[in-house]
Every structure is written in structure tokens, then in C-alpha cells.
Design a binder for these strands. Sequence first.
DNA 1: TATTTTAATCGTAAAACTACGATAAACGAT
DNA 2: ATCGTTTATCGTAGTTTTACGATTAAAATA
Lengths: 107, 107
Amino acid sequence: MTRTKTDLFTPEETRLAELAKALAHPARIAILKMLAAKNACICGEIVDELPLAQATVSQHLKELKNVGLIKGEIDGPKVCYCLNDDGIKELHSLWAALESTVIAKCC
Amino acid sequence: MTRTKTDLFTPEETRLAELAKALAHPARIAILKMLAAKNACICGEIVDELPLAQATVSQHLKELKNVGLIKGEIDGPKVCYCLNDDGIKELHSLWAALESTVIAKCC
DNA sequence: TATTTTAATCGTAAAACTACGATAAACGAT
DNA sequence: ATCGTTTATCGTAGTTTTACGATTAAAATA
């Protein structure tokens, strides 16, 4: 059957898992770092800096965009990507909520 | 070919991605929350609280253990799970490093 | 208008993930 | 020694992820 049953977890758990999944690949973390460092990058720059084919990078960018962590703006034939403040903040607060309960609690 | 090329990213990117992947499922986030709340849980309690089969929960526990976020201690026929402070701290610092560069930087 | 550049999408293949029933292994209790 | 309890592992099926070449679409340029 393999159904996900996401409805059986809280919205916070489901959403944080979704955001975590977006971070679950080193290329996507590298992209976020690039966008943070340069504030905004055209797609081509990102492709040039990653050891992956253009199609693959485009796929990773789409995932980050779909989950709300980055935005892409068409600029002529190029596309300028930047961080999406709303998504970053959401990730920040969801993770902070979990972390505060989890840090410094071990047996 | 589908090789991962993880060697072409920094160790920090690779490790954070690995830890993020462990958080990339609501059940595993729920497990971490349970362990934080109760400090330690026997496996059976976790199985009872999650809407998943015992075998599936065992698989999720294994993933969290493999990545270093939890520990399991055999206690007779039962197994007592708890958070692994080292892994939690590592996640904390890796995420903090990325977040500090990423927060409040948008176009 | 034809050409070039840029980036998304399509098609596809291999691997990993998710889920579960069935089974096995380990231990306590009878 | 046998039985019941607990949890890991095995086997397996369906889905998703990752990766890439090839193609398409859109815009600038010649």
C-alpha cells in the first residue's frame, strides 16, 4: 500500500519533516549557502559551482522552491534565485521549537 | 550511473544533509519529541504511540540510531531508547552554522 | 528571421525510502 | 524445557529520489 499517513502526525511534524527533506542533500545545502553568501545568484552560477549536471541542479532548485525555501525570478533569459525569507523563518522557528525540547536531554 | 558524489561536497554539508535526512520523516520527529519529553522510552511505548507497524517503527529507530541521534540500551527483553547528546549537539551546531549565514538574507 | 544562450522539462535508469507481514532471536516466567 | 513477550531482521512491493542526456521554450542578439 505504502501510503504516507502524513495526516496521522501533527502539521508541525509534517512540515518540519518536509523542510528537513529539502535539506537532506548536500547540493541543496550548498545552494542555500551560495544564496546566503551572494544574496542572489543566477541559475548558471549555481550550476557552475556544483559538481552536477544542469538538469540535476535545476531539479534541486525546484525542490527548494517548492518547499518554500528559495524564490526564482525570471530576468530575461536567465533566472535569478534568492532565499525566501518566509520559508527560512518558518524552518527556523519549527526547528527551534523541536530543538528547545531536545537539547540537553539525555539519559 | 547514479553515484552520489558526496565526496564533492564539504564534510559539513554532507553530514548536515545526513542528519537532515534523519529528520525528513514525521515519525522520526515524533520519536525525538517523545524521547525528549520522557527522557527515555522502551521501544514498545514508541510503537504504541505511532500509527505504524512494529517493523516500520523499528526501522525508523534504526535510522535515528545509525545517524547518531539516539541510543538504544538493551534492558532484558526490552530496549530502552534515549537521545544521544553528542548527535543532538552536532546537529545543533551544524544547523546553527548554516542558519547564521542564511537568516535575514533575502533580496 | 535565424542563431545563440539560458533554464526548465521529459524520459529514463538505478538506488534509496517507506511500509508491512512473517520470521527469528533474546529474555523472563512458568 | 516450554511458553509468552519483546524487538530486530528478512523479504518484498510500491513509491520517491537522484542523476543525466536530450529536448523544449523563451529571450536576447546578430
